[in-house]
């Protein structure tokens, strides 16, 4: 008699926990041969609501961590991912990557995490400015995180797209709610397991799987989400922009191919930062040139 195979049910990641969808729904992910490879949660709008709540709760203390500490935490993610690279490669191959493609994707993802780990305690020095003003003020601008950022992950990529959109967001002190690729969600859930076993506080990253068509609307209309990261190929780009108007969410639209080296940089971090300018009164004695 043929053995009946047990398919793993991939669970979602909310507030540092791994619940199933509150709706109890799931869908089957198929490989190229149309064979089922896993059961994956079909998240509902209530799961999304819970995820945003968890993200909001976690954001304050994540922002208050020192930038240096955030860098350490991101680096730890890279370490943990490295330790489980075999599993990621295997899952990408289930999702129709060749072995070589899968290995490159995982390598690039790890490198990208290390890249943004390095930026954590540096981007603000590089991007901030001291501004010349014509009054007795020391005037400077520096960056602060926006809050909760929604990420509609690249559909065509199993891991790199997700990582490349997520890392700059949390490097800058935001928390995030991710909707994983619908057809390639396995690595997203495994990444959640990696995040959970590294030092990322619960709620800073929340990962949902399911139907983009169902979830883009409650995410982009949610009044407690401050920004949306999406790729240009996503069919809901203009819908998302329209729904984001109510609370003036910042929508950033990226290329869907993050494999190029130019698809990383400090601008991806400052995309989800608010610039705060401070006017600090100074004493100006006798026209002295430097008074602070």
């Amino acid at each position: 008699m043929k053995r009946l195979e047990v398919l793993k049910t991939y669970k979602i990641y909310i507030g540092g926990k791994f619940p199933r969808s509150e709706s109890g729904r799931f869908y089957k992910v198929l490989n190229k041969a149309k064979e089922p490879i896993a059961n994956v949660c079909l998240s509902s709008r209530k799961d999304l609501r819970n995820a945003v709540q968890a993200a909001r709760k976690a954001q304050g203390s994540w922002q208050e961590r020192t930038a240096f500490n955030r860098g350490q935490v991101l680096y730890r993610i890279a370490e943990m991912l490295e330790g489980r690279r075999a599993q990621f490669v295997e899952e990408l191959m289930l999702e129709n990557y060749t072995k070589k493609e899968a290995q490159t994707e995982v390598d690039n993802s790890i490198d990208r995490i290390v890249y943004y780990a390095g930026w954590c305690d540096k981007f603000n020095q590089v991007a901030s400015s001291v501004n010349p003003v014509s009054s007795s003020h020391f005037n400077f601008s520096s960056y602060e995180p926006m809050g909760v950022i929604g990420i509609l992950a690249v559909q065509s990529s199993g891991l790199l797209g997700l990582v490349s959109m997520l890392m700059p967001v949390i490097a800058g002190g935001n928390s995030s709610v991710i909707i994983a690729s619908e057809d390639k969600p396995l690595c997203a859930v495994t990444l959640a397991e990696v995040l959970n076993s590294s030092d990322v506080p619960g709620g800073v990253v929340n990962i949902l799987t399911g139907s983009i068509a169902e979830l883009w609307s409650p995410l982009s209309s949610h009044m407690d989400v401050n920004g949306i990261s999406i790729d240009a190929v996503n069919e809901h780009v203009s819908d998302v922009q329209l729904a984001s108007v109510d609370n003036l969410k910042r929508v950033r639209i990226y290329s869907n191919d993050f494999s190029l080296i130019k698809e990383q940089g400090i601008q991806f971090i400052t995309d989800f930062q608010e610039l705060k300018t401070t006017w600090h009164p100074i004493e100006k004695i006798g026209g002295a040139s430097s008074s602070y």
């Binding site: 609501r49 409650p218 209309s221 949610h222 009044m223 407690d224 109510d246």
Partner: peptide, 9 residues
């Protein structure tokens, strides 16, 4: 409104 709200408002 059908839209999830934020404590900010």
């Amino acid at each position: 409104s059908g839209v999830y709200q934020s404590a900010d408002y």
